[in-house]
Every structure is written in C-alpha cells, then in structure tokens.
Computed example of a mutant assay.
Amino acid sequence: MNPKVKVLRLLFVALSLLCFSITTMSADLDWQTFKHRFLAQDGRIIDTGNHNISHTEGQGFSMLFAVAANDQKEFDHIWRWTKKYLQDPQTKLFYWKYNPISANPIEDKNNASDGDVLIAWALLKAAKKWNVPEYLTESDTIVRSLLKYTVVEFGGYKVMLPGRYGFTAKNEVIINPSYFIFPAWNDFLRRTHLAEIKTLINDCYRLLQDIDWGRFKLPTDWISLSATGKTYPAARWPARVSYDAIRVPMYIKWAEPNNPILVRWSDWFRAYPRNSMPAWENMVDQSTAVYPMRGGLMAVRDLTLGQLSLSDTRVLVSDDYYSSSLKLLSVLAAAGE
C-alpha cells in the first residue's frame, strides 16, 4: 500500500474515533470540572448564577451527568442530599428550591415538575446501569406522583403543569414548554407502558406544533393554554424565547432528532450570524437582547443545527452553573443517552 494512502487512512480512522468519542469523553471529562465547581461537600449543586441557591433542576441534571460519567459515588452523594432535604414525605415530589442562607431554607413548598422528572429519570438510568433495584422503586414512585399531581387535561390537551400549585385558573393554565422533557417521558413510557404517558407525549408535541403566533411560531418561556385550546404568551412574563425555552429544541432533538418542529428553531438560529445571535428574542415585538448567545446557549444552537463540536462542550471558567449544565446536556442529547 502506498505509504501516503496508509497515513491518510489511519488519519481518517483516528478522526472518526475522535468524533465518535467526543460525546462519551466530554461527558466524563467535563463532569470532573462540573462537580469540582458546583458540587458542595454535602451533595447539593450550587447555582452560581442565582445567588448560590440549590434546586431540583440542578440536582436532577447532576444526577444524569453522574450516571453518564459512571460515577456512582457522586450520584449517591447527590441523591442522598436531595432525598433528605427536598423530598416531600407526603407526595414524594420535591420542594423546588433550597436557600442555604435562609432561616428556613425551604420557604416554598411547591415542586417544579421538570426537576422531579429529571430526578426520576436519573434514578431510572442509574438502576439500569448499576443494577440497583432501590433506584427503580424510587423512580417509579416519583413518576406516579407526577401523573397524580401535575398532569392535567385542559383545552383538548394533556399537559404537565410546571408545579402542583399556582398554574391553574378557571379559563387557562400556565405551562412552561421547557419542562416537556420528551426523552425522559419516552423512557418512562417504555418502563410503564402507561397510556397516560403516551397521550402526554403526543399532546405536548401537538401543542407545540399548533402554535400559530409570533415570529417563527416558537414557544416562549411561559405560555398560556386557554380552555378553548388556544395558546399565547403568558401575560406575567415577557414573550421571549430565552433561557427557559432554549431547552425545548434540545429535548426534542434528544428524543426525536428528525422531528419537523425543529425546522422552526433552525430557521430562528439561521436568521442571525452565529457570532451575533442574540441571547433572547421577544416573539411579539421582535426586540432582542443587546448581548449575544454564548456558552451553553450556543451549545444548544449548534446541537440543533447539527454543528456541535468538542469546543462547544468544554466547561470554561466563564461558564456559570446553568451554562455548564446546558453544555453537558447537549453532549448527552447528541449521544442520545
């Protein structure tokens, strides 16, 4: 064989292996950085961009990362703290927020359904990876509680409310589409075969598809669902595609990489040069952030467009907890894990 051809073939194989291993290597390597920066000694995850509080979102994200990195020691560490301090003994859901400097760290007894989903999903994955039946029992209990307390039928759709309290009214309910964690719901369906979960998945996809308002017909961070089945930006929040809604394409890409609704997100991302993509846009008045996307937001953009690279997923000193989380989540989404 021609030496040059042999070298080229070896180079091709090496590059292929590198591309194949980016998701697995980066999840592990960046988990080391992530836990060094954000995991406290007691097992709680510190949200450095939000007054150093902890919340179920961060606990759930980090449990997922620990499973992906095959780090059972830290998984148990995080889970034990979460169960001890945040789990409601009555509902088995979790108090969403823990403020370590408050006289009463659990001031709000409400849950956040996305945090509950993430915790249950991580436990399900951990049970399979490490063959621990107790994790599976805990996961099943949380899923049953989510269905009981947060899933409702309204306006012709079955949806998951953002929390048990505070999101329903006579003529509308408030929903947060970034709480529609489709890949987790898919795993819950495979585990339980419950028709209720299948309907939830199908109806939430349909709800997103039925959005017919705003620029690019994208869901804003918070939306209202009326009793007639119409959706519109929720009045209590700016009509922005912002730090919450950025997770929507990531979860859809994770669950169904070829779902046609992703075209709407691709159109929005491509409407701006990559380096000047605004961090948020108001879909009603088209005002935009005066600062660009960076960090984890950019990782989600690149994931959605099929352009995610290793450099997108490295956790940098400039990344806060949420930016770092989006980077690691994008890695897992790209890997379909």
Results as ranks from 00 to 15, higher is better:
residue 204 C to S: 14
residue 204 C to I: 00
residue 204 C to G: 00
residue 205 Y to D: 02
residue 205 Y to W: 04
residue 205 Y to F: 15
residue 206 R to T: 15
residue 206 R to C: 05
residue 206 R to K: 15
residue 206 R to L: 15
residue 207 L to Y: 02
residue 207 L to H: 04
residue 207 L to S: 00
residue 208 L to V: 07
residue 208 L to F: 02
residue 208 L to W: 01
residue 208 L to D: 00
residue 208 L to S: 00
residue 209 Q to D: 15
residue 209 Q to G: 06
residue 209 Q to R: 13
residue 210 D to K: 08
residue 210 D to A: 09
residue 210 D to Q: 10
residue 210 D to N: 15
residue 211 I to G: 02
residue 211 I to L: 04
residue 212 D to C: 09
residue 212 D to R: 12
residue 213 W to K: 05
residue 214 G to K: 08
residue 215 R to K: 15
residue 216 F to G: 04
residue 217 K to S: 11
residue 217 K to F: 12
residue 219 P to W: 05
residue 219 P to A: 14
residue 219 P to Y: 06
residue 219 P to C: 10
residue 220 T to C: 11
residue 220 T to E: 04
residue 222 W to Q: 01
residue 222 W to L: 01
residue 223 I to S: 06
residue 224 S to W: 07
residue 224 S to Y: 01
residue 224 S to A: 14
residue 224 S to R: 05
residue 225 L to I: 12
residue 225 L to K: 10
residue 226 S to R: 06
residue 227 A to I: 14
residue 227 A to T: 12
residue 227 A to V: 10
residue 228 T to D: 14
residue 229 G to P: 04
residue 229 G to E: 05
residue 230 K to M: 02
residue 230 K to Q: 06
residue 230 K to R: 14
residue 231 T to D: 01
residue 231 T to H: 01
residue 231 T to M: 00
residue 232 Y to D: 03
residue 233 P to L: 08
residue 233 P to I: 07
residue 235 A to R: 12
residue 235 A to E: 13
residue 236 R to N: 15
residue 236 R to T: 12
residue 236 R to E: 13
residue 237 W to G: 09
residue 237 W to A: 13
residue 237 W to N: 13
residue 238 P to E: 12
residue 238 P to Q: 11
residue 239 A to D: 06
residue 240 R to L: 12
residue 241 V to M: 14
residue 242 S to A: 15
residue 242 S to D: 14
residue 242 S to T: 03
residue 243 Y to T: 08
residue 244 D to N: 15
residue 245 A to W: 02
residue 245 A to G: 12
residue 245 A to F: 07
residue 245 A to Y: 07
residue 246 I to R: 03
residue 246 I to H: 12
residue 247 R to K: 14
residue 247 R to Y: 13
residue 248 V to R: 00
residue 248 V to W: 00
residue 249 P to H: 11
residue 249 P to K: 04
residue 249 P to I: 03
residue 250 M to D: 06
residue 252 I to V: 15
residue 253 K to I: 00
residue 253 K to T: 13
residue 253 K to Q: 13
residue 254 W to I: 04
residue 254 W to A: 04
